[in-house]
Amino acid sequence: MGTEYIVSRGANIRSIEVVEDRGHEAVVRLDGREITLQLHTLPDGRTAVTADGLGQIMTRHYRERGEVVIASGSADFRYEVSDVRESWLSGGAGGKSGKGGHIKASMPGRVVRIAVQPGDMVAEGDVVAVLEAMKMENDVRAPAGGIVKQVPVTVGQTVETGALLVELEQAS
C-alpha cells in the first residue's frame, strides 16, 4: 500500500499516490492509472523524468517557502504537497470531516521508541514514535493535535511502510 499526497498548484489539486519508490524509478497512481516514472540523474545535476505516454522533462528541484519547485528549462512549477493524512487531520484538501487520524509508518523500519499512550493529548509536531531505518532514527510527528486513541505497535517491532503506528482522535 502506498502513500497518498495532495499535490496542489493554484486551483489544480491532484491526489497522487506514491505506490513504490525504487530510486531510479517510482510507481505512482493518479486517477486510478498506475504510472511508472523513470528517474535518471544526469551528470550536471538534473533529473530526467520519463514515463510512457507522458514524454520527458529535464528538471532541477528545490524547496522554497514550503513548496516543492520543479524547474524545467525556463519554466518553474511550484507545488504545495501534503500527505493526505495531514490534510485529513487538519481538515484541508481531501479531508472527510474526520474524527481522528492514522499516523502510519512512512518507511519500513523498527520501532525504537513510543512516546505516547492512549489518552494522551498531543499537539501538532509532537514526536509520537521513533522509527529506525537504514541505521537512522526518524522521528514520527503528529501532523495535527489530538488525543491518542490507540497504539497498536510495541517497541522493537518491525513494521512495513503504511503500518498504523498511532491512532488519534480529534479533541472536542
Binding site: R9, I16, V28, I35, L54, I70, E80, S82
Partner: peptide, 24 residues
C-alpha cells in the same frame, strides 16, 4: 503544467518528507 512535474513533486515529497521537513 506537465503531468510529469506534478507526479515527480509527489515522489520528491515522499522521499524527503512533505511540509514538515524544512528543506529539500
Amino acid at each position: 503544467d506537465p503531468e510529469l512535474a506534478a507526479l515527480y513533486a509527489a515522489v520528491l515529497a515522499h522521499r524527503h518528507g512533505s511540509k514538515a521537513q524544512p528543506a529539500l
